[in-house]
Amino acid sequence: MLRIVVCVKAVPEPKSAEELKIDPVTKSLTRMDMPLVINPLDRNALEAALLIKEQSAAHITVISMGPPPAGDIVKECLALGADDGILLSDPSFAGADAYATAYTLAKAIEKITAIDVVLCGRASSDGATEWVGPELAIFLDMPVVTMVRELVESEGASWVVKADLENGYRLVQVELPAVFTVTQDANTPRTLSFSGIIKSRKKEITTWGLDDLDLPAESVGLKGSPTIVSKLTYVESKRECQIIEGTLEEKVDILINKLVEAGVI
């Protein structure tokens, strides 16, 4: 049976994420409690796992590092069809950059035995580094393929995948166990079903903290992060805007004149 781990991040709900802004007056950031949602691109990673499981025997573990409310995101993944879920949550994990995140996830994944496949989304909506997957691969000593859009052959321990490139793609052969980051073109994620929610009610998620991973506090969270934020600066807008007034037709005409002036028509 194929053992699949899907890495899922709980991210701030987009609308409230956008409201988090540097105050132009105080030039500081007003924090607020933001509702969390599953990182949209991680739905594609989970879907890829669920599709594999529809074809052959597989066990799907979802793993997420985040604050306690991220547990709800893990539970949502169980309702979507994952078999079990692990939440990595500990005050010492907070403030992790991509390096420390990947390191902590790797240490947790190492605790699960005989993993064949680790799936990540292409990027997280709030960090958007695209680094966690490849870094995870180094820490797990596994090969990695990023930007996978199709599983061409997934029989046995040697897979062939199609991965995006600028203006094209590459066909890559990989020996399992391996890490893949999945693009949003790979599939269309399913939505929650009522029966899924009912079935998942019986499933429990496991929570692991620093002690469970047997890691020194210096290797995780902010302390384990090579990079830090050194400053945050407010950006003044640069242009003086002229609002075009009038009826719809007048606005169209004026705008077309601006396009003529700009020399594009």
Binding site: Y99, T129, E130, W131, G133, I138, F139, D164, T227
Partner: peptide
């Protein structure tokens, strides 16, 4: 930040045990 660079950068950084900043 090409497709190759986006895959290679984190592999190099993790191997060298250092940080990196995206884009």
């Amino acid at each position: 930040s090409t497709f190759m660079g986006r895959e290679l950068a984190p592999l190099i950084a993790a191997k060298l045990g250092t940080g990196l900043t995206a884009h």
